[in-house]
Computed example of a mutant assay.
Amino acid sequence: MLNGRDPRIDFFRGLALIFIFWDHVPHNPLGQITLRNIGFSDAAEVFVFLAGYASVLAYGKVLQREGYWMAALKILRRTWVLYVVHIFLLAMLMGIVFFANSHVETRDLVAEMGLTHFVTHPQQALTDELLLRFKPNLMDPLPLYIVLLAGLSLALPLLLRYTAAVVTVSLTVYLLAPHLGWNLRAIADGVWYFNPVTWQLLFVLGGAAAIHASRPRPLETLALYRQPLFVAAAVYVAMAAVITLSWRWPEVHDAWMPSALGERLYPISKTDLSPARLLHFLALAYVTAKLLPGRAWTDHSLARQTCRMGRYSLEVFCLGVLLAPLADMVNALAGDAFAMQMFTALMGVGLMAALAAWMDFNKRLDQQALGRAPLHS
């Protein structure tokens, strides 16, 4: 039986949303402390993995309680909601970017955001939008989530019953996809920036982790430094941090990076979820889980706020997507002053936290109203 909601999952989903917002604002000083600057993976891997974890946790309980067809129906209903949100979010994003572009004279924000296709071919762009082929910058994670969640409606019972077999098939598809050119079509580069054929592995691994976490495990008595898997994962995370930080100084990087290692490591593809990225995220997740095994730390004030953002991840993600170009516009009008960049970065997170608090408040009101509703025979 799958367990209930884990506040640690909500916390890291909320943290990933903050990092995604900061990463989406150009020249943002706080973007220097996000995951992409200290390792091969970034917040996108966190978002997809935890999406798989939360989805299997939620709909797996529905399947166990109400059967497959009800679980599949609820998954497809959620998929439809995400699709509709994607359409409206893209329309709002385009309006904001066109507004910002009319005020910033030094840059072409429309081109930077990948909206030129809509300007030059508006009718075709509308069709491509409905088919998930037109995905401007900032919009890529949501269509990926739509496709992965739709696939879960078929894979969920198999994943619950034959977890190892499903992971094996998923891994095989992941390994074959880059060599066989498997991807979905899109405008611009011709394929999806987040290739769902490869990123599905991370989603499946998230679901497998949720299933594994629900099973009883023996208590480990060995200290962490005596656990070979933890040590190997920690060393890989540390090495990835050193290599990533060295990218800031190309001369230093080229001087100490062995050519044989560089040939095997680069390029680190985000589109196909390069093995270096995948292994880095898995190692980072494992180290984090080992260092933070309990839940007590999520009771602190800032952690609770972050957890709340994670609980309303769709709404908070959408707001972050809309706030990023506005923050970029304000920064550009202020001459990219450091103080203004810090202000917009923190203000954006504050607004995202305020939205989560408002959503939580409304949910409690609905629950109270439901509790006061008269019973009818």
Rank of each mutant, 00 (worst) to 15 (best):
G4C: 02
R5H: 07
R5D: 04
D6Q: 07
R8L: 06
R13C: 03
R13N: 04
W22P: 12
H24M: 08
P29G: 03
L30C: 07
G31C: 06
Q32T: 15
I33S: 12
N37S: 12
G39P: 07
D42W: 06
V46G: 06
F47K: 10
L50R: 07
A51Y: 02
A51Q: 07
G52D: 08
A58H: 15
Y59P: 13
K61N: 06
V62R: 02
Q64I: 00
R65D: 08
M70Y: 12
A72K: 09
L73I: 02
L73F: 07
R78S: 09
V84Y: 05
V84M: 09
V84G: 10
H86E: 02
L90I: 06
A91Q: 14
L93Q: 12
V97T: 09
F99T: 07
A100V: 06
H103C: 15
T106A: 13
T106K: 08
M113P: 14
L115Y: 09
H117Y: 13
H121M: 11
Q123T: 09
A125S: 13
L126D: 10
T127K: 14
L130S: 09
L131I: 02
L138C: 04
L138A: 03
D140H: 06
P141Q: 13
Y145H: 14
V147S: 04
S153G: 14
S153P: 05
P157I: 09
V166G: 11
V173M: 07
Y174E: 00
Y174I: 03
Y174G: 01
Y174A: 05
L175W: 13
L176E: 01
H179K: 07
L180A: 14
G181A: 04
N183E: 02
R185H: 11
V191S: 09
W192A: 05
Y193C: 07
Y193Q: 09
P196I: 00
T198F: 01
Q200V: 00
L202D: 00
F203I: 13
L205A: 01
G207V: 11
A209M: 05
S214I: 06
S214C: 10
T221Y: 11
T221H: 11
T221E: 10
L222P: 09
A223L: 15
P228M: 03
A232K: 01
Y236D: 03
V237G: 01
A241Y: 14
V242N: 02
T244H: 05
W247A: 15
R248E: 09
R248F: 12
W249L: 15
P250D: 10
E251K: 11
S259Y: 12
E263K: 10
Y266T: 04
P267G: 00
S269F: 13
S274T: 08
L279C: 11
H280C: 02
L284V: 07
K290P: 00
L291Q: 04
L291A: 13
L292I: 00
P293I: 06
T298D: 00
Q305V: 05
T306F: 08
R308V: 01
R311I: 00
V316K: 09
F317W: 07
D328R: 14
N331C: 15
G335W: 01
A337F: 08
F338P: 14
T344P: 02
V349S: 10
G350Y: 02
M352A: 04
A354C: 01
L355S: 03
A356M: 04
W358L: 10
M359Y: 04
F361W: 10
F361H: 13
Q367S: 08
Q368F: 03
A369W: 09
A369C: 02
L370K: 13
H376R: 15
